[in-house]
Amino acid sequence: MDLKNRVEQCLGPENLVVAMAECQGDLSVEVPKRSILDVMRLLRDTPGLGFNFLSDVFGVDNLDLNKPKKRPKKKTEEGEGAEEAEETAEKESLPPRFEVIYLLLCLERNERLQVKVRVAEDDMEVDSLYSIWKASDWPEREAFDMYGIRFKGHPNLKRLLMWDDFPAYPLRKDYPLEGQGEERHLIYDD
């Protein structure tokens, strides 16, 4: 039985599969956010699956993907208000902005599985996997650092790569690559 069926068999009965996709042999399964801990325990403990190794945890910002493509940019001054209204209307209908992706690995059969959770911008809290795999310690902190996704139950959720009072979440798509001048207070005000 291939991996997809086995995962479906394991998670399906409890309605834990939101969607499944396959890309070049990489199976990914999207699960509801609230039950991520249950899903992980199931995936780890079910005999046919045995995903006992957490390879990585990271976030993805789908802001650009969610945007309707090739929207013409209106340069008219009067149109601004209308645009904003349009944007807010769009936002409501959009899928949740962030994703957290967990890469799982079964050491016995060398199978890999991506588990996905969608995180909306207004509810940025996911259960931490620290109680299951300690490997999720820093990756979760990094996801918090880079995207602002909070992990409930993480023992030490603070910034990992940026300094503590860094004001933004740099890997978000609306953050410019060259920064917003955060260097200033660090270097010049000394």
Partner: peptide
């Protein structure tokens, strides 16, 4: 590395 976290040359310091 012209990015948000890199100092663009140590001669700034």
């Amino acid at each position: 590395f012209r990015t948000y976290s890199t100092l663009q040359g140590i001669d700034k310091l």
